[in-house]
Structure formats: C-alpha cells, structure tokens
Design a protein around this nucleic acid. Sequence first.
DNA 1: TGACTTTAGTCGCAGAAAGTGACTAATTCG
DNA 2: CGAATTAGTCACTTTCTGCGACTAAAGTCA
Lengths: 223, 223
Amino acid sequence: MRDRSSRTSSFSVDTVLVTATGNELAVLLTRTANERERWSLPWRAQQAGETFELGATRAAQEALGEAPGWMEQIGAFGDGKRHPSDAEVSVGYLVLVPHETASPRAGYTWFHVADLPPLSPRQRAMVDAAIKTIQSRLDQAPIAFRLLPATFTLSELQQMYELLLGKRLHKASFRRALQAAWLVEPTDEWRSEGRGRPAQLFRYLPKKRRRPHRGIRFDFLYP
Amino acid sequence: MRDRSSRTSSFSVDTVLVTATGNELAVLLTRTANERERWSLPWRAQQAGETFELGATRAAQEALGEAPGWMEQIGAFGDGKRHPSDAEVSVGYLVLVPHETASPRAGYTWFHVADLPPLSPRQRAMVDAAIKTIQSRLDQAPIAFRLLPATFTLSELQQMYELLLGKRLHKASFRRALQAAWLVEPTDEWRSEGRGRPAQLFRYLPKKRRRPHRGIRFDFLYP
DNA sequence: TGACTTTAGTCGCAGAAAGTGACTAATTCG
DNA sequence: CGAATTAGTCACTTTCTGCGACTAAAGTCA
C-alpha cells in the first residue's frame, strides 16, 4: 500500500544554526560530500513518523553534540531551487546556539553571515529568512538570551541587542527598559574582566506576568 | 522508478483565507468530496515546477474567482497529523480577503473563527497558526488594510484594529498614531452612513520612508 | 423649525516613557 | 598615587500616550 516505504521521503529538514561571535552573527556550515566544493547547512532527510522538530533537533545534535535550547520553524522552501539532497521541499529551522557551547563537531565550521560561501539557492534563502526571523521576533521571544550563556553582564546583553538590532543603544535607556520588563534577575556573582569595575552577573527570568502593553504601533517594516 | 508518477506529488499547498465580517474573523472552508461529512481548507496538490505561492494563488482563485491581494506562508505542517489528501507535508498560506470581494464560489462557505466545524488536525493547526500570524504581524505588515476595501473611513480602520487586537482603542490616540506613521492619505470623497456627520474616505499609503523607531521594546509575549 | 441624537473629527492637559549627558563607583595600570 | 577603564545611576528634557472634553455635520422627531 505505501509503495515508497523503502525510499527516504522526498523532503528534508534543514537547520540554520546561529551563534554570536563577538560582534557578528555566524552560521554553522558543513562541506557537502557528493557534490563539488560546496558548503551546506546541516540537513536531514525526513523520516516517516518523525516530527519536523525532532528531525531538526537530530540534525543540530549531529552538528554540535548537544541538543539546542531554542528552535523555531522558518518555513517551507522549494520552488524548484536546488538543494544538496534531491528533496523537492525543505523545511527550515532556526536554531540559536549560545557562544559558550558553540563548539561544533569535526567537519562543521562557523561562517560570519556577512561572509558566507556559496550555498545552494534554497539554503541561501533559508539563511536570509532566518536572519529576518531573528530581527522580527527580537521583542517577542527571548532570542538574545539564547545566544548568551546562562549568566551574563548587562553590558554583554546590551551588546547582543546592539548586534541584533544593528544599532547603538544608550546604556541608561537600555537598563531602564530592561527593568520595566522584568526580564532578568541579578545573581550574587560578579565578574572582573581585566580593567574597570567588576560587573554583576544576571540571568534570564522567564516572564510570568505579561504587561498589557500600551498604545498602537504602526511600525510597518514593509511598504 | 517513480512508482507514484501516476499520482500527484506527496505534498499539498493549503490556504487559510481570512476575511473580517462585521465584528468577527472568518475562514473559508469547503466540503471534502471523498471523506465523510467534513470541512476542509481549500488545498491543492503541488505540481512539479510550480512555486508554493503559485499553488496557493491558484487554490485561492478557485475558491474566490479572483486573485488574492496579500499572502504569506505560515509554515510547513505534517508530523503525522491527518489531512484530506494523503500528502505527507502541507505548506500553509495565510490569504487576506477584503470583505467587499469576499464572495466565494459555490461549495465554499465562510465560518467565524470562533465557531469552526471539525477539521483535520493538520488543517486545524494551520488555522491556529494563521490567526497567530495575523496578530503578531499586525504592526509589521499592512494586514488591516488587506481586510478592508481600497477606501475606508478611519472609524472602519479603527474597528478593524480593535477586532484584530481584541481590545478597544481610544479614537484620538488611534488617529494620532496613524498620522505619525504616514500610513493613510485622504481622498476627496466622503461617505454619509445614515446618521451622523459624513466621514472622509482614506486609502492606504504604502510607506516609502521608514521611521527609525525609537526605543527598545521588551514586550515579550512568551514566557 | 428647532431640540435631540448620532457619528466624525480635534484639542489640550496630565502622566508615562524614552533620549541624553553627567555623575559616582570600583577596579587595573603605570 | 593618579590616570584610564568599565559598571552603574541620576536628573533633566523631549516625546509619546491615555483620556476627557470639545466642535462639526448630518438625521430624527415633535
């Protein structure tokens, strides 16, 4: 009855693993085995009866050696564009990796997003969609915290936001907004980073109460 | 070799057509032909070499008789959940339909989102994702305008936002925010709707210049 | 006709939030 | 010790939002 049980399915799950290195975003790539000199996102042929999430988790785990902390589907990609597999359709996942745990297995390399090698057109579209997703969900999901270690200084957090937003932020304003949102709680640890006054370490505080936020925002990004 | 060549491909494109009727959102459904008494989203088996967008456009066109004005992919759905077709994967599209042009062809019926008939689990998930997409992108894409006719009064626009946001808005604040965003321009037409002072008609003004909007918003929706 | 109702559209104030520069605090370097 | 460096806070100004009260232009009804 199911006449394709012997073949793998005709679609793949691809992962865009993103981390932040210093002052740039980076994406994890691996060399394609069969094709000519090319790089590829970590991907996986979808197994029957396996959820997309599980497939993406496995692909990420294979690349990093550990399970990712945060994942979100960024859509289905196909449209005849080429892909390392012969899959008709690829489901893309954005995976955020804290820099501290960003030690890939052999064969995987981080590339700055501004300086990516050629990818298959379909995977290139996925990377672009992933970056767009990061920026558009920055104020709706704890993205910045998933790119930082479990504890961090407020300066590190601010730098992360500046990287993701692509603009400088004022220190006092940043901290005031952070306080109002109840997003972090202080630990009793401090870190001395060479020069200057030591900084207190904070951790992410998942929000219980939601602010019924004021106003209407007509901040259209599209024309 | 391709032992299913007589069949259509193993994935479908499904459309969640949404309109706003008075004070509720509605989704367009059609009866399934083969299965027992059930309703279904308009869907289409994906043709080789056809983009998802084109497939979604065709499905929408078949249901409405005209091309949709705005569309956005809401993701890939599968995970073993049942679907009217035997497709392993379905790509979902959100399609917005202005109420004025919302006259479906025979066999298609609008259902209020609060009162949907049973759907296949996969399509039910798509509808939920579509509604979520509408609300989360309300300030990033001209969603409200795609649910209204080409010209509209500001009161109609405000009612649309109130419907989509699920809360009342203050008239003066709404209009002030609207002015600041340069989203609409007045026409020289007025509409007298029975009682009361006639209202000026406005049209959507696609934005050229983007405001570099102030501040950081930590308005996390998720915990 | 003229008071009353209904809807459209605007004004201005009070209070909240964001932009900003200057300040204090704690550490390392020389 | 003083200069340099980074962390953290304060206070003032500007901008934005909530909101009530106002004017404007139509219909309704006695």
